[in-house]
Design a protein around this nucleic acid. Structure first.
Lengths: 263, 263
DNA sequence: GAGTGGTCTAGACCACCTT
DNA sequence: AGGTGGTCTAGACCACTCG
């Protein structure tokens, strides 16, 4: 490993130079995924900088999702693409998240992540005011209190997931949904059963960095964003519900079939 | 502002306690978006910690996309949702990214970001080997060299964008695409002109943290992920091209119309 | 017990912005 | 000039993992 690359007269900060050097090592395959990094103390000695500088450099790579540290064992190269699973967007949120163990797809890397999931609450139903963004999608006044079912667990693909179903008040009345029924049913299933399938809406995707709560819940490493998928369920122009799903950005490849034009 | 919240006997690190305290200030509206934070030195004094600890706490909030620092002026609360624009996924990548100024949508917040864009290369055509992921989408052997047109600039929505069009070798031959033609045309337009519109594929979405290059190109603040949209263009089952777009995660809400079932 | 990363202190100097 | 964030040093102690 080349350690003479750091130029103290350069206007580029040392920690960025160091980050760039290590990034190059990774990209050019000299530090392959899964392999342990030189320890922070070794990097100090190699590059003649303090530990704070080394940690800044590693921090950059962590935030890029290229490096993951394990307290007590070392830092390791991550392959951000390694665990991705194709997820059909139209299937997301339609099934209740399962609790407990994830299936191990044969030949796939271990989904240790899925087991670490915290707060396996199964599902939980309550009445809360809509967030501004959900209000817009659900087409209700901001602050309207609606019935929400929240499910946490393992997705059908084996990835950890947090899903929320926001039920439109009109749909709640029309379908005569009672809270007690929901202990045994996933709301979208119940709606379909009651004749409000809601298959005509649109899907909306956003991405952002997780809140600490979500980061812990989905066991996300540093440098991993969250994909948010909002599925607007409509029936004859009327919004029935919004299914909000939060998916780990390093494990998810969302697939949408193309709409045929000219129909 | 309450500064007695830090508990030195707690097992929770001081910087995380501080981050949590500041996060609460933001969420409860005592530090509204756009307003200057207390300076790092003031926070030092208030909470009786060193500057490194203050900076760690602010670092957490920056990585969450809630805070942005400006060298010399101060740190400010960001509203991660403020500048979002609805983007129709089916329109992405179909038009050549424009160079220069973005339109200012009336009444919208200033898109200063769009002006800061670096490396306005317009478009650039070259032959390079496909990346593993594009190989899969394009259905060619890994490493195949294909014609790529890259466009950088302002999207039709006013957001900065990087778009790449990967042309399948068979489509290149069938449509008799010559590199010279591409100085005046955006490849998808040229293909449509030549009778290979490619309207039958699927759209694939991923999210990740930007590389330093992309971060600079799209003028992304810390804590903002990138949405990647890959549009697979097919014509009678044959893949014609893949349009790869990189969109700023804090400015983009991707909208997909729902496919009608049972046709 | 030795090695690893995680946290924290107490300073220093610099680059940048505002007034 | 004075205030702001950005970088860097030189230490210290702790929590965790592994052989």
């Amino acid at each position: 490993m080349a350690w003479y690359v750091l130029d103290r007269d350069s206007s580029e900060p040392l920690y960025q130079q160091l980050a760039a050097a290590l990034r190059r090592e990774i990209e050019e395959g000299r530090l392959p995924p899964g392999v342990a990094f030189p320890s922070e103390r070794k990097l100090m000695a190699r590059y003649h900088v303090t530990r704070a500088t080394v940690r800044s450099a590693l921090g950059v790579l962590k935030q890029e999702g290229r490096v993951e540290s394990e307290h007590g064992s070392g830092s390791f190269v991550r392959d951000p693409k390694a665990e991705r699973r194709r997820v059909e967007a139209r299937a997301v949120g339609t099934a209740r998240p399962r609790i407990g163990q994830a299936e191990e797809p044969a030949g796939e890397p271990s989904t240790e992540r899925a087991f670490k999931i915290q707060g396996l609450i199964g599902d939980l139903t309550r009445r809360i005011p809509v967030t501004p963004w959900v209000a817009e999608l659900l087409q209700v006044a901001p602050g309207t209190v609606v019935l929400v079912q929240e499910g946490t667990g393992i997705d059908v693909t084996g990835a950890p997931i947090l899903a929320r179903v926001w039920l439109h008040p009109v749909a709640e009345e029309k379908a005569q949904v009672r809270e007690e029924e929901l202990s045994g049913f996933w709301l979208p299933d119940l709606l379909k059963f009651k004749g409000l399938p809601g298959e005509e809406g649109e899907d909306v995707v956003e991405a952002s960095m997780p809140t600490p709560h979500l980061k812990a819940l989905l066991a996300l490493p540093d440098g991993v964003p969250v994909l948010q998928l909002y599925r607007v369920m409509r029936e004859q122009e009327q919004v029935v519900a919004v299914i909000e799903s939060h998916l780990p950005g390093d494990m998810t490849t969302l697939v949408f079939p193309r709409v045929q034009e000219g129909f």
